[in-house]
């Protein structure tokens, strides 16, 4: 699979966050923290990471996935995993 651009990844991450947290109406910024700013609990965060890694068919190390803290971290993680 050709690695999608960071913008595409960012859009996918935003879309999945809004699906998981439909009540979150604000702008999603790259610096937003998943828990504190967006309000994803740890299970929601795992659901997000599950969805994005599944979409791009990534076989990831779960412990590594759990290092991500912000929206930007998720995009960076995907970019690195697909590089």
């Amino acid at each position: 699979m050709t690695a999608p651009s960071a913008d595409i990844l960012r859009n996918d991450v935003d879309e999945i966050i809004r699906r998981i947290r439909p009540d979150f109406k604000g702008e999603i910024k790259v610096t937003d923290r998943l828990r504190e700013d967006i309000g994803l609990d740890s299970l929601h965060a795992m659901e997000l990471l599950s969805a994005v890694t599944e979409k791009y068919e990534l076989d990831v190390d779960i412990e590594e996935v759990q290092e991500v803290k912000t929206v930007g971290d998720v995009v960076q993680f995907l970019t690195t995993a697909m590089a």
């Binding site: 699906r19 299970l43 795992m46 659901e47 990471l49 599950s50 969805a51 890694t53 599944e54 076989d59 990831v60 779960i62 996935v65």
Partner: peptide, 10 residues
């Protein structure tokens, strides 16, 4: 369809 599959996939 929307389940967390991170662990199940392994």
């Amino acid at each position: 369809a929307r389940a967390n599959t991170l662990f199940a996939r392994k």
